[in-house]
Amino acid sequence: MSVEAREKRQPWILLSPALTAVILLLFVPLLFIVVYSFWLRTATGADVAGFHLDNWQEALTDRFYRDILLGTLRIAAITTLVCALMGYPAAYFIARSGGNKAILLLLLMLPFWISYIIRTMSWINILGVSGALNSFLLWTGVISEPVQMLYNQTTVILGLVHFLLPFMVLNVFVSLDGIDTNLEDAANSLGATRWQSFVQVTLPLSLPGLAAGGLLCFVLAAGTYITPLVLGGPRDAMFANLVFEAIITQLNWPLGSALSLMLLAVLGLLVAIYNRYLGMAQLMKGLG
């Protein structure tokens, strides 16, 4: 074998364990889901194999699924916007904090050491009728009766922001950290105010990080089902809750498969648009 041929083959040999894992753990199960989506569920709960378009027809034409999907995308968009507004200043502060950077980054990562479900449930102890906030407001005399703060769309968004904010901060931080601070100094020396140098130099250069953080937050928010389950009221279900119900409660795996592929297609389209205009490299930097 020539050296050239060996060099060509080497990356594939090195990649083979990862590729095998991706194929076995992602593509093969996905293929099962695709096949399942064309099956049918009988009245007793058993599945009938075959090629039936009923589930797809229902998923694509029923207004119920479309409305919940649009509601889910709206909640994900609001969550992403709030994360961006809160995350950017935090990332900027960390990126410009000199020697304390490592400690601040560690603090940012701390919530990941606690289970996402526990973190979500912690809001019940904070916002509940007998929770910390109501107790404090009652104690200070601001309110005379506990206020009902939990189990609505606002608390769902709050829970999602709590979960996703670190993803936004990390991505923006990576972007900001890579910007040469001399550029801001140069802008200042040319007469720009600090605000102008930020708006015209730093912000545009950090936009890829903001976009990567936004994409991650949006995709993760749109796919969540725990947060609305724990912090939402009767009408606050998101699309992933429909998938959960179809598969777990109704034992309708074929319909659940069609619904999950539908969500995957919508989010996949969003990732493809992002990749077309910004590329995946920035996202990889943030995740790394």
Partner: peptide, 11 residues
């Protein structure tokens, strides 16, 4: 079970 899934969500 399917109908309840919808009613539960406001339908």
């Amino acid at each position: 079970s399917k109908t309840f899934g919808r009613v539960q969500k406001g339908y």
